[in-house]
Design a protein around this nucleic acid. Structure first.
Lengths: 145, 145
DNA sequence: TTTAATTCAGATATTTTTATCCGAATTAAA
DNA sequence: TTTAATTCGGATAAAAATATCTGAATTAAA
């Protein structure tokens, strides 16, 4: 389904959203620990997303990452598309590049519905929703096993 | 979503099912050409599936692969699980190993529905359905672009 | 101004996935 | 019995994904 890179990205972005209040910068070490992921690798991923405009970053002491209200309008689907492309949301269930409405593969119609539900799931969830959570509602993103 | 290995496997198995009539062995070269895939790689994949009991193979001249009526009861979901495991059908939408009914991730409930629809799609499609197709209904599995 | 902590950038390393090579074993037909 | 065509098995190669290293640039606080 999602690449590991993409899973880290989603978890990191959710964590940052949850902790982006009043311009507070979220630091990479805290992010990586909180989502059980390799720090330098997540750093790279966030660098990329930051260049693409999905979040702010600031260097130097007390620097870190931040998701503004505007950036928080992005959905999880936006982030997935930015990293893994849209194969998940538009690809064929048998991996045929030529599959389409006009030239459907054997499972096209059924698969399409599942794919669309997946897209709905990820696109209905925006970073905003995490930003406005109260502290006691903040969700666990860490591996606990 | 699916690994490339798994995509090749599904397409190859469908092709073999379509051409498995009256004990007729389907030859690897024909399979690979028909599904636009690397012949030796698909050979390896089918060797594995054959060991796991998803199809027959016979060596030597005029040898090849064959799916019996019994084996054709398998669904596409069975083949996916055999190759990629069940992450697609059971995994978390954010990649959290600890996500579950009891300890749900932020998108658990919605995602679960999409995942289940995906499973339905693949598990409702059995190889049998391709085996019984008339020749003029045989479907295109080749890349055309 | 100095210092300590941080992200950035580019290179490198490791692991996994995808793909190929090659010779042995097998088989049916000639 | 010989031959040609095929799959099998194990090794190897290539490509892609994942992860780390290192030093430079930046920044806020002391």
């Amino acid at each position: 389904m999602l690449s590991k890179t993409c899973e880290y990205a989603l978890r990191a972005m959710i964590y940052i959203a949850q902790h982006s209040k009043g311009g507070n910068m979220v630091n990479l070490k805290a992010i990586a620990e909180s989502i059980s992921s390799p720090q330098l690798f997540v750093g790279k991923i966030l660098q990329g997303l930051s260049k693409q405009g999905y979040l702010q970053s600031s260097k130097g002491r007390y620097g870190g990452f931040y998701i503004s209200d505007k950036e928080a309008k992005h959905s999880l689907a936006d982030i997935i598309s930015a990293i893994d492309g849209d194969k998940m949301f538009k690809g064929c269930g048998l991996g045929l590049p030529s599959c389409s409405e006009h030239n459907p593969c054997p499972i096209h119609n059924q698969y399409k519905k599942a794919r669309e539900l997946l897209y709905q799931t990820y696109s209905q969830t925006t970073l905003e929703q995490f930003k406005t959570l109260e502290p006691d509602q903040v969700l666990l993103l860490k591996r606990t096993i």
